[in-house]
Design a protein around this nucleic acid. Structure first.
Lengths: 296, 296
DNA sequence: AATTGCCATATAAAAATGGTATGGCGCTTT
DNA sequence: AAAGCGCCATACCATTTTTATATGGCAATT
């Protein structure tokens, strides 16, 4: 059995006539006659009753006709969906996001999903190192991280924006109430909650350096493994934090707020990171394109 | 696109190698290479990444593979179901049954359904003339009737059994209590509920004739249009009826019972009636075969 | 450097498919 | 009643498609 036979068969069924189907398909009558006979032979079933003025489906033929219509339908669907996958309009996109990038990631994904609604999105939040491991294992296609990475060897990245790093505090722990910016000297002896700086991702490393340069040993009250925890500690009054301004700005109801450090401006850069693979799947390519178009 | 290309494609996907698939399918390698290229051209999509030690599905190729498996599955299903329809193991069987034949019909259908469980059964009860009309309109395939028909011109029939016609009564209307059979003379003046005898289907016609031969005019208290109604009238004490013994026997809890008429034995013959069509659908043929094997 | 295994291409043989001519059959028309 | 018409089936040749053989390029291994 092959498509041509089924196609001929369906045309004959619709025209209720072999010669009629031949006219419809723009081929001669005998080929259709023959293919029909071959199909009947292969199935071992009579599909049409030949009358003097055309043909008529048997019960079995009716069944084949119904099924073959579904067949053609799913054939078209199949071809279309394969093209969609290749074009990146369908498929699976798996992304990793660090807490600091939630805003920018969701914003970008919203635009992406509006443009490619058929792509299934998988998103996972986690620590940068864990996400990078998954990226290496090809379990994620791209990551929303912050620049400063020392690990992006063999990886491609794209800067998506910039974000000033500022001190985070609540009214009780404000080292300089009433002032819009905080002089570095005001941080002497102030307890700080910072991301652990023994790896490469902590935002506070340069701030600590700056404090030492200013002549005092900073007081790190708490080392946090992740940003959400740091925010919670700051909110609980443990001390001041040092985080991208946008994270705090995104929580308008929260009692915490930020102020810049006078004489010290640091920035963190949200970046998109991915493997440099020339055979990247379509939806990943489209996503990276969109990120490129939306990037800074 | 055609089946061969899909088949080759699936084999390559499974072997992760063109030459491997060629060995598997027992064809040379170049044809597969070429059909694959044709398929990719038609879809406008790269389905495999060619490496130095085989090939690897792309995302789009993976999609096509998944879909093509379903495709092959439904293809097999389709062919099988068409053969089933032709063999009579699948399809639709529409039957008409008169009340008197309910027992024999259900019994036969039970056996049929055990043998051909995939056939959808449609059964309808009605008056003989209505059923015959539907048979003529091809809305029913066969009917369970009783012989005596004058209308079966052009129809084929098969006797399925025989059934003595007996008087039906309840204790209050018994014309000869204490006796096993009732002499015809005992029916003089006894009110009777009979199927209307102005058409050809009434069971009582010959009984009325016999009464007249015995020298009295029978007292027909009620003319019934159908058997269930006649039974109800008899049960309500309107008079005695005259019906196939098996109908009453099938209602063991009922107060009505039957007795034969002495010196007059009439029988009715359950028959199966159908159109004489050489292109009868498979399930009808199988059903008639089974009826033939089970018939008297 | 040679060998091996892979895929792609070119070409000739084989197979399948399509077109033309023709015949049988039943119905309608003259 | 015979001729004409439209239908499907068959026979046969032409064309197209598909296959097999031979060969080349390429990368990895020996």
């Amino acid at each position: 059995m092959n498509f041509k036979q089924l196609e001929y068969f369906a045309a004959v069924a619709e025209a209720k006539s072999i010669s009629g189907a031949a006219r419809e398909l723009d081929v001669a009558q005998p080929p259709i006659s023959r293919q029909l006979a071959l199909l009947e032979d292969e199935l071992g079933v009579t599909l049409f009753l030949r009358t003097n003025k055309g043909v008529e489906l048997t019960e079995a033929g009716r069944r084949l006709y119904e099924q073959s219509r579904q067949m053609f339908q799913s054939l078209r669907t199949m071809a279309d969906s394969v093209r969609d996958v290749a074009a990146g309009a369908r498929g699976r996109l798996k992304l990793g996001v660090i807490y600091s990038d939630v805003q920018i990631a969701t914003h970008l994904l919203k635009k992406y999903h509006e443009k490619y609604p058929q792509v299934e999105l998988y998103v996972r939040m986690g620590a940068p190192d864990d996400l990078l491991d998954d990226l290496g294992r090809r379990e994620l296609h791209a990551l929303f991280l912050r620049s400063q990475s020392g690990r992006s060897c063999g990886l491609r990245e794209r800067v998506l924006g910039e974000d000033p790093l500022e001190l985070v505090m609540c009214p009780e722990t404000d080292p300089a109430p009433g002032r819009d910016a905080i002089p570095i000297q005001a941080l002497r002896d102030v307890p700080m909650c910072l991301l652990r700086s023994d790896d490469l991702w902590g935002y506070g490393r340069d701030l600590l350096e700056e404090c030492r340069r200013a002549g005092f040993v900073p007081n790190v009250a708490c080392h946090c493994y992740d940003t959400p925890m740091e925010l919670q500690m700051v909110q609980a009054g443990f001390g001041v934090g040092f985080l991208p301004k946008s994270i705090v700005a995104a929580h308008p109801g929260s009692p915490v707020y930020t102020k810049p450090v006078l004489e010290f401006s640091a920035r963190s850069y949200p970046i998109l990171v991915w493997e440099d693979d020339p055979y990247q799947s379509g939806c990943v390519r489209r996503f990276l394109e969109l990120a490129g178009a939306c990037g800074l």
